[in-house]
Design a protein around this nucleic acid. Structure first.
Lengths: 163, 163
DNA sequence: TATTTTACGTCAGTCTTGTTGACATTCCAA
DNA sequence: TTGGAATGTCAACAAGACTGACGTAAAATA
């Protein structure tokens, strides 16, 4: 309805600009997932498999609980995905030595190969986008995204950065 | 594995930085949808309903085909959502006067009210993020998102901006 | 040592949201 | 007048999320 000019330093922010940001997120996320989705389809996997593989690759030897926290799904949901990945020999389990209740997850060579394919496709689009807009825009991009996360996820995100 | 320094102007882009961007998108999208999701749950609606309402609000009187292009789903999938929104009197149909096959979609007052609730919640988070990072970061944020869209969606996005 | 808690797996059932395929209706335009 | 476009709808299916309940092994603790 009206421009929203409540705060002192917010003068540059109109409802229209916020709405544009919302729509940009919506459309960009479609692009973000489009390339991996096409590859996954060929193997009869979905985004859930991609996400699991991504973070197992990122944090090799992670236990199930930790992965659950990162992904934000239930164990039943993750388990279904993990089971097929293990059956297909993309992921292996190792029982913890210190705490034998824990299962540590690793990508096999086959798993690493598919993960590489997926991340290459996804990175390619991001690299192209970065190249077109320049480094300053990239800095801003990441800052806004980080500020949009729930605080718990922000912690998770930062932990991953420093690992 | 190794730093990726293939192109001339890409020296600033490492695999690690790209991966951070990917993870930032993943985590931020969770934040992006979290607040509306909580509201939708109370009404027994899902994200699909939110998206439909958002764009019907944005382009009042749009026909079904146009909405399908924006949303990128099948008509059967959209129809299910649309049917419940019409039953619940959040959306109304008007048969086209020029082409009577077309159905033009509008939000009712009730629909506008819920849409407002949802967009307020979503905007609030984005406004906060913007406030924290400052205007330059916001510009970069939008630039990168736009560059990440499929070219067809980029056109759609720009059309919405100028409408 | 006995009990409780934790980590994990699994079975069963449900929901949302997406898909394909087929078919009917309305109606514009050639 | 007829072909094709815009739309609605029925049916069937799948991915991927959820809840709830139950089981097992192992660690932690009382």
């Amino acid at each position: 309805m009206q421009n929203d000019r409540t705060g002192e330093s917010l003068l540059f922010l109109t409802d229209e600009q916020l709405r544009q940001g919302i729509e940009a997120m919506f459309f960009a996320y479609r692009g973000f997932t489009a390339d991996p989705d096409r590859i996954l389809e060929k193997y009869n996997y979905g985004r859930a498999h991609h996400r699991a593989m991504h973070f197992i690759n990122r944090v090799p030897g992670t236990n199930v609980n930790n992965l659950l926290k990162i992904l934000g799904v239930t164990k039943q949901s993750l388990n279904r995905v993990l089971r097929t990945l293990i059956q297909d020999e993309l992921v292996t389990l190792k029982i913890g030595t210190k705490d034998r209740r824990e299962r540590h997850l690793y990508l096999t060579d086959k798993g690493k190969s598919l993960e590489k394919q997926l991340s290459t496709a996804q990175s390619h689009r991001m690299r192209e986008a970065y190249r077109r807009v320049g480094p300053d825009a990239v800095t801003g991009f990441k800052k806004v995204l980080e500020a949009m996360m729930d605080s718990k996820l922000q912690v998770t995100y930062k932990k991953l950065r420093s690992s």
